[in-house]
Design a protein around this nucleic acid. Sequence first.
DNA 1: AGGACATGACGTACATCGTAAGGAGGCAGA
DNA 2: TCTGCCTCCTTACGATGTACGTCATGTCCT
Lengths: 270, 270
Amino acid sequence: MATCARCGKELVLPGRGRRPLYCSRSCQARAYRARRSVVVTPVREQRGEAGLSRELIVRTAVRIADADGLESLSMRHVASALGVKVMSLYNYFAGKEELIDLMVEAVFADGLDSGPPIRGGWRAELEAAARWEWEIYSAHPWLLEVIATVRPPLVPSLLARFERGLGAFDGLGLDPVTTHRLYLGVSGLVQGLALLRVSEIAAGRRGGGISLSQWRAVTVPAVYEKLGAGRYPRQSALRDSPDVLADLEEIFTINLRIMLDGLAGFVETA
Amino acid sequence: MATCARCGKELVLPGRGRRPLYCSRSCQARAYRARRSVVVTPVREQRGEAGLSRELIVRTAVRIADADGLESLSMRHVASALGVKVMSLYNYFAGKEELIDLMVEAVFADGLDSGPPIRGGWRAELEAAARWEWEIYSAHPWLLEVIATVRPPLVPSLLARFERGLGAFDGLGLDPVTTHRLYLGVSGLVQGLALLRVSEIAAGRRGGGISLSQWRAVTVPAVYEKLGAGRYPRQSALRDSPDVLADLEEIFTINLRIMLDGLAGFVETA
DNA sequence: AGGACATGACGTACATCGTAAGGAGGCAGA
DNA sequence: TCTGCCTCCTTACGATGTACGTCATGTCCT
């Protein structure tokens, strides 16, 4: 009397080979899913057949996150953008976290190998790395939300970028730990300034249909007013200054220069 | 024939005064809630009566967020920590966003007026402001998540901090726009480096019960391995370096010094 | 004194989220 | 034709934020 290889129920039909037997196709499918663990092998994709694929799903998810922000990146949203039902996505990813990991990987890998390595000494190389990171956060603001809320995305392409950034310090005679610290500083400055853009964009989205400047025009004076006119003279002096979002490139440029100046002093004395 | 002041239905009983009349207690309550708009006036609280209060709720929410992170800050969680049902909280806040605003306000206001203003020139003042911001993000890692995902929290205490920070540049002869840019640079560096801590902590929480170092020990070599041993020599050299989390104070100190050095050069030539 | 209003705690209900569990059926090889 | 591999699907669950309405208190005016 043979039994089902998964649920143990007795089988009416005796098995003919030495393969496992299942009491139903459901039991068989479930055993299959348990067997293949987390890593999905996209077979159809290799054969170039139509239908879903990890890459297609990731591209769609990135497009949604770019346009509407991370908060509207729901599995249902992605699925419906692909004309597919939600649970179909789970044939390609273990869950939303893995999808986001792959989104990060895809974005950081984009253009990774393009162009020759920058020449011109550590300063030019570092500046190039910083500008590249800056532009990625500009194009994909959700990246910083992921970094801030979810995890340090230890994806290969990010490690590659990191490695290239560390390489800027080659030949300066610094020890690895110091190199690491310095590069984290430059990268931190970029990320911190990029946060300005992210939060401004998020604020704009939150304001409903109104533009950012309209939103600011409403709330900022209200806050100032509530606290007394003369209490914040320095910020009041900024009322007619360019909007932070409009001034962002200038802010980035001037502060990157300052940081690199400081670094120059450091490597000279070291 | 009088009508309900809210829903317009005809009333059977004619009104006797000139007050608005309502067709039911529900209509009256709803009109009341609409009338008091967003700002809630906590009357009981003033009288020192027991029960809920905005401040108590905010304190509880901050405690939860400090301990378990922003993602486990749910209204139900806060309510149950207070021994209260969920909807009771909505008598004190328009919604979760307002609660979070007040959490930010409370945290930034804490210790705002303590101590005399720092003397010792712009550099000492800036450094003090940066260190203070750094410590706040250390104590309340969820703050950066709020900044990154939700909104620029234009709460009064934050504006006050900002104003004080801008004040460090007083007397240097810089124009307001430049001052603004420079301060955003220092603050950006602090926030960017603080992101390191936030993401490390989030990663640790994500790993379930295991500690951060255990998690790293598992995943980081796995990533390295998958990509070939010699492909990331500079990061491989860091394998035995102190953990980022352990090294964070050093990373902050050295990079703040570098940034301030760069700033010194800037203000001298300006 | 009596009734209208202010205030706050609560129950119910709903849409949306991630995703676990399992079923239906196309496909390829035996 | 059968069997296992693989994909897509339906159903369902628990958690979330919160709209709406109800009830029980106070408080105050007449």
